[in-house]
Amino acid sequence: MSLRHFLLLVLSVAVIASAIGVVWSRHQHRQAYIALSTLENERDELNIEFGRLQLEQATWSEANRIEQVAGTRIGMKFPTDEDIVVLQP
């Protein structure tokens, strides 16, 4: 086998290998992108859930409601001036 033929063989193998490499990396890219978008979706869903929970918390902690609950259900009251003691350093 002459050097020419050897070179041709090597180059042909290289071409085929790089072609397969392109296909493979393209496949990898798609796989990775799918994984990425799944994770992003997951993140968005969690963010949305977080927003919903914040909204729920804000609704529960609405000042008017807190005041009602504190006053009626657990009998809290605002300290009157006589109940407050001022300490001077």
Partner: peptide
């Protein structure tokens, strides 16, 4: 105000300003 409140038993009346409105008065 506190001294005055102690002197005037049983219920203290704050001097110039009206007593604080209790929470829940809305």
């Amino acid at each position: 105000a506190q001294a005055k409140a102690k002197a005037a038993t049983p219920v203290a009346v704050a001097p110039a300003p009206p007593a604080t409105v209790p929470a829940g008065g809305a």
